[in-house]
């Protein structure tokens, strides 16, 4: 992506030996994070593709929001896997956007259900997905901030 970052390839070492060729973001707990983001990508993208392809007119807003969520999830997953400082920042921004999206859409669906004839991934703060959509960005923000401090202090 935009990164224009340093080093050659990711070092295959887990978190504790920070030889920052490129900050590795998927060591340790990061791998679990990638897994959940991957699941959410598949869930959100396939769901929105199906819904938009079959009956988009029924709930255009909801389906579009699901598609946006899927794209955001996809980008975060890619950033995590890629690693590096630029990707870390990009993922940080996207996670913040994701959290904002969950909160806004979640509140929106509570306040004005009539705007959503069908639910989105982010409806009711992600209740249909066991609240993973709201827990995931919080965890990811924590993880991404932590891996910066880990990289800075060798």
């Amino acid at each position: 992506m935009t990164a224009t970052q340093d080093g050659p390839q990711t070092q295959g070492t887990p978190g504790e030996s920070p030889k920052p060729a490129r900050t590795r973001l998927i060591g340790g707990p990061g791998m679990l994070l990638v897994w959940f983001y991957g699941v959410m990508v598949v869930g959100a993208v396939s769901r929105s593709v199906y819904q938009i392809a079959t009956d988009f007119d029924r709930a255009p807003l909801a389906y579009t929001l699901s598609a946006i969520a899927g794209v955001v999830y996809g980008f975060i997953t890619y950033s995590l896997v890629r690693g590096g400082e630029g990707a870390r920042r990009a993922a940080l921004v996207c996670c913040a956007a994701e959290l904002a999206g969950v909160l806004i859409v979640g509140t929106w669906t509570m306040v004005e259900p009539s705007a959503f004839p069908d639910s989105t991934v982010w409806s009711d703060y992600g209740m249909g997905y066991v609240f993973i959509p709201v827990l995931l960005p919080l965890t990811a923000l924590y993880w991404l901030r932590r891996s910066r401090t880990a990289a800075v202090t060798p």
């Binding site: 998927i26 707990p29 990061g30 679990l32 990638v34 897994w35």
Partner: peptide
């Protein structure tokens, strides 16, 4: 999940498979 745990040879690989 299994392939991801192959890439992550720590307890977190196990957590990933559990998830």
């Amino acid at each position: 999940a299994g392939f991801m745990s192959l890439a992550e040879r720590t307890r977190w690989g196990s957590v990933t498979v559990a998830a």
